[in-house]
Amino acid sequence: MAYRGSRLVFAASVLVAAGSIGANLLAHGNVVPQAVDTSALPDIVGGNDTYVIKNPYRADAKVYAIAQKIGESAYGQNCARCHGLEAISGGIAPDLRYLDKGEDGDEWYIQRYHKGSVRDGKVYMPAMGDVLGQKAGWAIRSWLDTKHEE
């Protein structure tokens, strides 16, 4: 009987351990933003201190393509954990494929990127502007334009 009891204790311990491991795997928790190399992109008038409200990279197709490539990597490193791979949300945060496309959604996007989102003292999205910079923000937005769905 003692052997059977010890097996039950062992089985219960395994289940508790598995549950706590599973909880850690599913939670996105605190993360450190990853730097984005934007050196291939032209500077933005005003630098990181004065945010423009329209994507400055759309005006030049070559620059826009470079921004999209940089934005894809930056999104994967800094946004996908909440907004989902390929901008397809798993429910934690908004599905960014449904942002207004082009200039119509730029002002809302950059405001949210720069300042974050806090309601009732709860941080729904951290402010990324001062951490990653304006160039990275517009690169991410450029890539998101390629993922747009109606």
Rank of each mutant, 00 (worst) to 15 (best):
H28F: 05
A65M: 10
T50G: 01
L25E: 02
Y57K: 08
V36M: 00
G29L: 07
T38K: 01
L26S: 02
N30A: 15
A35P: 06
A35L: 09
Y51D: 02
I21V: 15
Y51M: 09
K54D: 12
A18P: 02
A23S: 07
D37Y: 00
I66F: 02
K54C: 07
R58H: 08
K62H: 13
D60V: 11
G19D: 12
L15Y: 04
I21Q: 04
T50I: 14
A61H: 06
L25R: 02
A27S: 14
Y57P: 03
G22L: 05
I21C: 10
D49C: 05
V16L: 15
L15P: 01
Y51Q: 04
Y64G: 03
Y57C: 10
Q34L: 10
P33Y: 10
S39Y: 01
N55C: 09
S39K: 10
Y64F: 14
N30L: 14
A59F: 02
D37I: 02
D49A: 09
I44H: 04
I21T: 08
N48T: 01
L26Y: 01
A17T: 05
L25I: 03
G19I: 14
V45D: 15
I53P: 06
L41N: 04
S20F: 12
V36W: 00
D49L: 08
D60Q: 11
A18W: 07
L41M: 14
Y51N: 04
V52A: 11
G46P: 06
V36P: 00
V52Q: 12
G46H: 12
P42I: 08
N24I: 06
L26M: 03
V52Y: 07
P42D: 05
N30K: 14
I44C: 06
L41Y: 04
H28Y: 04
S20G: 01
A40L: 08
I53K: 15
P42G: 07
I44P: 01
L26H: 00
V63F: 05
A35M: 09
L25A: 03
I21W: 13
A17W: 08
S39E: 04
D43A: 11
G29E: 09
G29C: 03
K54F: 12
A17R: 03
T38Y: 00
I44R: 02
N24W: 08
A67M: 00
